[in-house]
Structure formats: structure tokens, C-alpha cells
Computed example of a mutant assay.
Amino acid sequence: MNNHIKKMLRITDEHLDLTNTEEYKIKGKNTLVIFGVYSPMPSACRNCGSTIVDNEGKSVVVRNGKKEVTIQLDSYQNMPTILKLKKQRFHCKSCSHNWTAQCSIVEKNCHISKFITLKILELLTEKISMTFIAKQCHVSLTTVLRVLKSVESQLPQQLKPRSFPEVLMVDEFKSHASYEDKMSFICADGETGELVDILPSRKLDKIIPYFNRSPLEEREKVKFLVTDMNAAYFQLTKNVFPTAKLIIDRFHIVKHLNTAFNDFRVREMKRLITNKKKSKANKLKSNWKLLLKNQTNISISEFKTWRSFPSPKYHLLTAL
């Protein structure tokens, strides 16, 4: 039975024995707790190199109790799983050195198993947020960032030039990369919506060198640069995409128009209240959602009564 559970958990270390499994409630969540013992016998002292037994047959390296550690494993059937492992400690009589046996399923001085680290690395290749990855793996966001930084040295130093679509959309979004910039930069294909790339900073001194590493022929393929009203992005057409036309996207135009109209509505309400016309001000206040609603979603054929325009003074009215 012990070997079957080890195979299920993908544990191949022959010195690790599982003794029991229980289900407990930890931090408000039902958690599967597996109990185990790890007791391999070393061939020599890690410090001085003394053998386990000297020439006279006396033990030099002896067992010195056990140390219990908690190792977080990958979820089993969507249930958080931890391993309560008693690791064997050893003592060397020659040099008085003490140490604890190191298990292969976890790195030294770490309580998160290698299985979770591999799962995080796999999820980092998908188009999902790091917050969602942390939630799926039952770890903190800091752990996800630490795993991401651990593979930084394996990335190529010289990135390949990137090709760009004819319609390039650029924008920024709030990210957790506060060590560089609180806002990250994102660009996508304006025709297909396919993601082009994400940069940790939206500052021009980071963006312009990124685009300039591609040859001019590739950058000239961009015919339209779609952006918001951020003045910094206007300089991209001058320095990076000389043949592109700058287009302010419809969303930000409508958003600014709605904001300006709503500000005017609030000012008009205050003016009416000052002129002791509170009933008219209340009409503007109670119907603010209708005033900001898209005209295409307003019915012009449905007649009904309105709270702000009661009968019999007012007849049945449409929303428009």
C-alpha cells in the first residue's frame, strides 16, 4: 500500500516511507495530510568525511533523533495536500557535526515541493495572471515571483527581432512589478486580438529600445498605432513607427465624453439646488444611469410612467 501511495504522489525516493493519511481543516480549508518518515543512512560524515564505522568496528556516525517538517505537495483531487515528514538527523562523533537528511522532493531550506515549482513554471507559459497561478497552486504571489526569477539566468541574453502586425494596439495595465513600474506595457494585434508582448514597464526609455531592436523594415509594416490619450505613446510614431498613423481608440473617447457629460450633470444639479429648484435637481440625480446609457440600448416604443415624472401631470413617456 505504501508503494501505491508513493506512485500516486510521484515520489520515487526509496528511503521515504509513508505511514498514514488524514484529513484536517487547516486555515478554513479541508487539507489532506500525509505522514511519512525519511531515514536514509549516509555513507560518510558530510563535514569531515569519516566513515560510519571505524577500523575497530565502532559507530562514528550515529542517528540523532528526527526533525519533523511540513512539505507542501501538489493538490490531490482539488484538495490542498501537505506531507508531515520526519527527517532523520545524524551526529558524527569524530567532528561533533550534526546534520539532517535531505529529501529529493524538496529543495534545501524550502517547504514547497518540486512538483509545485514545475506546475508554476508550466502555468507561467499560459496567458493567465500570477495571482490566479498562486491561487491554483495554493501558494503566495511572492512564491510565484520567486519561481519566475529563478529561471531568469536561463533566458537568452539577446532576444530575437520581433515582427509586428499592420494594426498595433498599445496600452498599460496595473501589475505587481513595483520594483520597476506599477504599470506594465501591453501590445496586441488590432485585427486578430492576438497578444504580441508584455513589458514590465510603460516608460519610454524601456519601450523604445525594445521596439528598436527590430529592423526598420519590420517596424514600417505597422500602418496604424491604436492607443489611448497618453501623450507618451504619441512619440512612438516619431521614434519607432515612422509610417504608422496614430489612432485614439473609441473606448477612451467615449469614456472621456461620458466623464465630461457626467461632470456637467453634477454642476447643473448644484446650480439648480442653489437656485432653490431641488425638484429639477432630483430628476437629474435619479436618472443618471439613463442619461449615461447607450442610445442603441434605449427603447423608443415602450411607454410607461417614471418616478421623476409622475401622473397625472405627466403622461406615459418613453426613455428617449
Score class of each variant (00 low, 15 high):
residue 25 K to G: 06
residue 25 K to I: 15
residue 25 K to N: 15
residue 28 G to R: 00
residue 28 G to N: 06
residue 28 G to L: 14
residue 29 K to V: 10
residue 30 N to F: 03
residue 31 T to I: 10
residue 31 T to M: 05
residue 31 T to P: 07
residue 32 L to A: 07
residue 32 L to Q: 12
residue 32 L to I: 13
residue 34 I to Q: 06
residue 36 G to I: 02
residue 36 G to H: 07
residue 36 G to Y: 08
residue 37 V to Q: 09
residue 38 Y to A: 07
residue 38 Y to D: 01
residue 38 Y to C: 02
residue 39 S to M: 05
residue 39 S to G: 03
residue 40 P to H: 08
residue 42 P to S: 12
residue 42 P to W: 05
residue 43 S to Q: 14
residue 43 S to L: 06
residue 44 A to G: 08
residue 45 C to Q: 07
residue 45 C to V: 03
residue 46 R to F: 12
residue 46 R to C: 08
residue 46 R to Q: 14
residue 47 N to R: 11
residue 47 N to F: 09
residue 47 N to L: 08
residue 47 N to W: 01
residue 48 C to F: 07
residue 48 C to Q: 12
residue 48 C to A: 12
residue 48 C to R: 03
residue 48 C to V: 10
residue 49 G to P: 04
residue 51 T to P: 05
residue 51 T to H: 12
residue 51 T to R: 06
residue 52 I to N: 06
residue 52 I to E: 01
residue 52 I to A: 05
residue 52 I to C: 09
residue 53 V to N: 00
residue 53 V to C: 08
residue 53 V to Q: 09
residue 54 D to Y: 01
residue 54 D to K: 03
residue 55 N to K: 10
residue 55 N to G: 14
residue 56 E to D: 11
residue 57 G to K: 09
residue 57 G to E: 05
residue 58 K to W: 00
residue 58 K to Q: 12
residue 59 S to E: 11
residue 59 S to C: 10
residue 60 V to M: 13
residue 61 V to I: 15
residue 62 V to P: 07
residue 62 V to K: 11
residue 62 V to T: 13
residue 64 N to V: 00
residue 64 N to Q: 01
residue 65 G to N: 07
residue 67 K to F: 13
residue 69 V to M: 11
residue 69 V to K: 15
residue 70 T to G: 01
residue 70 T to H: 06
residue 71 I to V: 13
